[in-house]
């Protein structure tokens, strides 16, 4: 019998290692499913109607909800979007349509670095920038912190989607006598609008769960926060404070809040990724 090639030892290595890579994937997926499943189970069982309509009950009393944190999170995200998205959009348009050479490189590189700044450091920054001059914590400070954190992704995703617009479309616009800015506003941006919007949705989903920067900016609040200049509760911070508290009742609330927050984020994520995947298919014919 002639010796087969490759030798048996290498065939065994082959099978063993390839199986191991499959097991790695299985492990990661099972961790994901465990996390989602556990959160779903714990969270859904702790949810009730009061959770969405009442403010927190005093310690020792059961019941109560986190309506103040839900409203707080929505206000913070609105403010963050108003601050972060316009800057990101303009920067993205600049990088894709106007910038070249070192200016483009510097901005692109700085944006990526800013994206990597730990969120807790961003919290310190906004604390010194907004909270120190104002002398108190506020929704405004929290919104600024989240807004700054939104800029890098808004900017880079806008740039990417604008770049994906074929050059021929721009040339068509220019050939019809439109100025460059008219071409951008009426042709290039509409062509990329779905991509840009989904990028912004993903961006909002990313900062919605940020906790560390809010600890020193929006702080927290046991009641509804009127206006924009008072400390405000938010879902992520309430999850944190409730989770590390010693009260069983608060743990339940933390699970429910985690469930609500994560469902929101995952829905945003899945919708935007589906839209993106479909858009890619269409643009590639």
């Amino acid at each position: 019998m002639s010796a087969s090639y490759p030798p048996l030892s290498r065939k065994i290595t082959n099978v063993v290692m390839l199986t191991l890579t499959g097991l790695c994937t299985l492990l990661v997926l099972s961790v994901l499913l465990t996390i989602l499943g556990y959160l779903l189970w714990k969270g859904a069982s702790s949810l009730n109607f009061d959770f969405f309509t009442k403010i927190p009950a005093p310690v020792g009393q059961s019941g109560g909800g986190v309506v103040n944190a839900i409203i707080g999170t929505l206000k913070l995200l609105t403010l963050a979007t108003v601050i972060g998205v316009p800057i990101g959009l303009l920067g993205g348009i600049y990088l894709s349509e106007f910038a070249s050479g070192w200016s483009a490189f510097t901005i692109r590189y700085t944006t990526d670095l800013l994206n990597g700044v730990p969120s807790v450091v961003m919290g310190i920054f906004v604390y010194t920038l907004v909270v120190v001059p104002m002398h108190h914590f506020s929704t405004l400070a929290g919104g600024v912190a989240l807004g700054i954190m939104m800029i890098p992704i808004a900017l880079r995703s806008t740039e990417d989607f604008l770049r994906a617009v074929p050059r021929s479309l721009r040339e068509g616009g220019l050939a019809l006598g439109a100025s460059k800015s008219e071409t951008i506003v009426t042709i290039v941006i509409p062509a990329a609008i779905y991509g840009i919007l989904t990028g912004i949705m993903l961006d909002i989903a990313r900062v919605a769960g940020e906790t560390a920067p809010l600890l020193f900016t929006a702080f927290g609040n046991l009641f509804n926060s009127p206006g924009w200049l008072q400390p405000s509760a938010s879902l992520p911070v309430i999850i944190y404070t409730y989770a590390i508290s010693p009260y069983e009742e608060w743990h339940k609330q933390a699970w429910a809040a985690g469930f609500v927050l994560l469902s929101g984020l995952l829905v945003l994520n899945i919708i935007s990724r589906v839209i993106l995947a479909r858009g890619k298919k269409i643009s590639h014919g």
Binding site: I87, F98, T110, V117, M122, L129, L155, S179, E182
Partner: peptide, 25 residues
């Protein structure tokens, strides 16, 4: 709408605000 330079400058401000934020940070 018509002025490309105006558009250029406005978007430039958006792009450079990244640098300003980083320096401030």
């Amino acid at each position: 709408r018509k002025g490309d330079e105006v558009a250029h400058l406005i978007t430039l401000a958006g792009g450079w605000s990244i640098l300003v934020i980083t320096v401030l940070l």
